[in-house]
């Protein structure tokens, strides 16, 4: 393993940084403009793709990951575990069956007016902490 000296680290010129900033600002304008268009279910995806492009620019240039493979592995590894966290949790939550008792007449809202097909309050008994009549 070679030990680079502290002053031997590659120095990026301010001009490059300026261009990166410019790109980031342009992407910000794009993402704001894109929010006025309706891509249907892809809205969030588009927003996140643009955010990831910006994030990559920051990480690669401002955080020097371009020249820093080792720490890039650490960082990407961290993101990978975040992804596992999200995907595994979603996997369970989204594959749960919506079991409903057959005698459930109307969905009783969990809070007033909630248009939810999912969780409902049980049909019997009083809610916890209901004030005395």
């Amino acid at each position: 393993m070679t030990h680079a000296n502290e002053h031997a680290h590659p120095v990026t010129s301010p001009k490059t940084y300026g261009l990166v900033l410019l790109a980031l600002l342009v992407l910000t304008v794009i993402t704001v403009q894109a929010s006025y268009f309706d891509f249907g279910p892809w809205n969030t995806v588009v927003a996140l793709i643009i955010a990831s492009a910006k994030g990559s620019l920051v990480a690669l240039f401002f955080m020097h990951l371009r020249h820093d493979k080792f720490n890039a592995v650490i960082f990407v590894g961290g993101l990978l575990f975040l992804a596992i966290f999200l995907i595994w949790t979603l996997f369970d939550i989204s594959t749960r069956q919506t079991v409903l008792p057959s005698n459930l007449k109307t969905p009783v809202e969990e809070f007033p007016g909630a248009p939810l097909g999912g969780p409902v309050r049980p049909s019997t008994g009083q809610p916890r902490g209901m004030p005395a009549q």
Partner: peptide
């Protein structure tokens, strides 16, 4: 970087 993600998720959904 975190703000870059917070911004669209909060303001632009």
């Amino acid at each position: 970087l975190i703000w870059i993600y917070l911004f669209p998720l909060m303001y632009l959904i």
